[in-house]
Design a protein around this nucleic acid. Structure first.
Lengths: 104, 104
DNA sequence: AAGATATATAGTAATATTACTATATAGTGG
DNA sequence: CCACTATATAGTAATATTACTATATATCTT
């Protein structure tokens, strides 16, 4: 049994994470949650997006292992499960102000 | 004139870059190019993907400002235009071995 | 110009994302 | 149980991605 390994194979999961946070709203959510949990409505309000969309983003990121969810009574609080995404965020901020955005 | 700014606005471009490299083949390409330029065929061969697909990935990353292309005779060499993606890659590798892949 | 090599692109089908509305579900308090 | 608040989900339409085949374009060599 010889299993063919492509160079891309080891990037399957990192790529999935990058794709997961590769959305303006979702990146903003990660930043908001960096310093603590927030409820769905809080997040939606800050983002200025509809509740249902926010919920979808949050659920999606939880599915991918980026966030976790914790119910507290009537509310659900989300937090960062995969701490590496914070590292990612810092990496983005660190790259100057215009960082990953611009060239060089 | 008051322009409404959402928290997500400042993440438009970083998110686009993350999405751009959020594909196993494209991440692998970035890694391959970290230490120097390569031609399309070289890249395709190492990746084990078809030439046309590789070309599409390369073109796409060039469009998004991640890579640059340089023609040399009959060949086209690609290299990394946005050096911040290298930082990203290191960030991924640095996060343990199982890094961004796993939780925590 | 013809042939060979390297790269790009057109066309396409399957699938995924995105953003939306409306509705359903879960928990709390009366 | 009912009303209320908070969250999740179903259904949907527009658009984007992906991977593929076939073909076009560009460059060099003879």
């Amino acid at each position: 049994m010889k299993i063919k390994m492509n160079p891309a194979d080891k990037f399957r999961r990192p790529a999935r994470v990058l794709k997961t946070v590769g959305h303006p709203d979702r990146l903003a959510i990660v930043e908001m949650l960096e310093h603590g949990e927030m409820s769905v409505n809080e997040i939606a309000e800050v983002l200025g997006t509809k509740q249902s969309i926010t919920s979808q983003h949050l659920n999606m990121m939880r599915d991918k292992g980026v966030l976790y969810a914790r119910r507290e009574g009537i509310k659900v609080f989300y937090g960062i499960e995969n701490k590496n995404v914070i590292r990612l965020l810092h990496c983005i901020h660190q790259s100057c102000d215009t960082s990953l955005q611009d060239q060089n």
